[in-house]
Design a protein around this nucleic acid. Sequence first.
DNA 1: GCCATACCGATAAAAATTTATCCATTTGTT
DNA 2: AACAAATGGATAAATTTTTATCGGTATGGC
Lengths: 219, 219
Amino acid sequence: MATQHNTSLVVPKSTLSRLPLYYSHIRKMQQQGEKYVSAAAVAQSLNLNPVLVRKDLSGVSSVEGKPRAGFEIDTLLNDLSDFLGYNKVDEAILVGVGSLGRLILTNKEFSSMGLNITVGFDKDPDLHGLQVGDKFILPMEKMESYIKRTGVKIGIITVPADQAQAVCDQMVECGILAIWNFAFTLLNVPQGILVKNENLPSSLAVLSHQLAKKLNNDK
Amino acid sequence: MATQHNTSLVVPKSTLSRLPLYYSHIRKMQQQGEKYVSAAAVAQSLNLNPVLVRKDLSGVSSVEGKPRAGFEIDTLLNDLSDFLGYNKVDEAILVGVGSLGRLILTNKEFSSMGLNITVGFDKDPDLHGLQVGDKFILPMEKMESYIKRTGVKIGIITVPADQAQAVCDQMVECGILAIWNFAFTLLNVPQGILVKNENLPSSLAVLSHQLAKKLNNDK
DNA sequence: GCCATACCGATAAAAATTTATCCATTTGTT
DNA sequence: AACAAATGGATAAATTTTTATCGGTATGGC
């Protein structure tokens, strides 16, 4: 039997998070006129372990790389797009049109990554009916009917931490399956609901603690 | 020999990234008048494995938790603050005063986490001399002298991806030791320089791929 | 004062992730 | 045509992170 490729192999989350970087790097090479790319070359450019990149790529590529040449860029980019879902469009709603919410709502790059944020919700009546970029802002009361009518599956939470759980509950209630949480709090969700937390304090903690340790060691 | 506590044990990065969540949760309990908290209780509230929380906490607490009661909240919060560096203030500079940069520059919460962003740099002359919040915006040319004069060690990069590496090189050149990178690109840095990447496309990839898989399995 | 309980600490086991090695294959060169 | 070099694939080892288990101890009820 031929080796299986691209057939629902289990790809670890850590791999998944590296794929967008590979994609954008290889995309750049394509634009520079390159035709082939090797895992080793990607690894070197991105400062990663070659074996790691090789393994990651072999998990998503539909064809084997050719020894001595590497992967055909066009094919590989296509496979990456497929795998990352850049080719199809997921719709999403966003709740909490503060400064962060506004930033996300107006960011055009998400659409090239297969995410189309269709509408924002906020409890502030002053915002209702306004447009941010080209997205309308609706009152919270409309969320339920909106989700149920459109069948949207992804919700983005950009409200303050103390309101996040309530928003989350409401989303789940209405049928949202995946939540991208920018509030600094862990959400309680029923089994089967996906949550991805975006967590600046955590990142900062890691960085500043490592720095402190480093300064301590060096002295 | 007595068991060592809080003595430069190796705390994994994953633990480090959970500590701020523990901190904010336990802080809330303190404000509600609680005196003691158990690892098990934290675990339940945050939906984490009890053993994991117990291990994390025992790594940072200066005292042993008491059976049946748990940890004294005041002491534990203090230890967490110490460990996370919330008690001392790190200064930082930010480069790239676009919408994201502005958001970070004006966010007041960082100061309670021990990060004081003192100034922003941008290449746009229209911004020079302006204030965002209470932070001045200076031209890029001033960066070198600023870093060298103040000895600031942390740099935040919020420029577009194609300019990030150049900014990074410049920072490192001037003596920055830790970089918080919000640009969607991996940075090449010399050995010993710390980099923490904040990477929305990666997060999105993880979330949307998991969702796709889920929808696929359910049907 | 005694006992059951809840909780911690430590050690061990398991799972996930990264890194190392070996081998086969294709390509470019001579 | 033969050979050297570069590359991916597969398997195995090492590392990191999470989860499970066991024994001990302080606490509160009786």
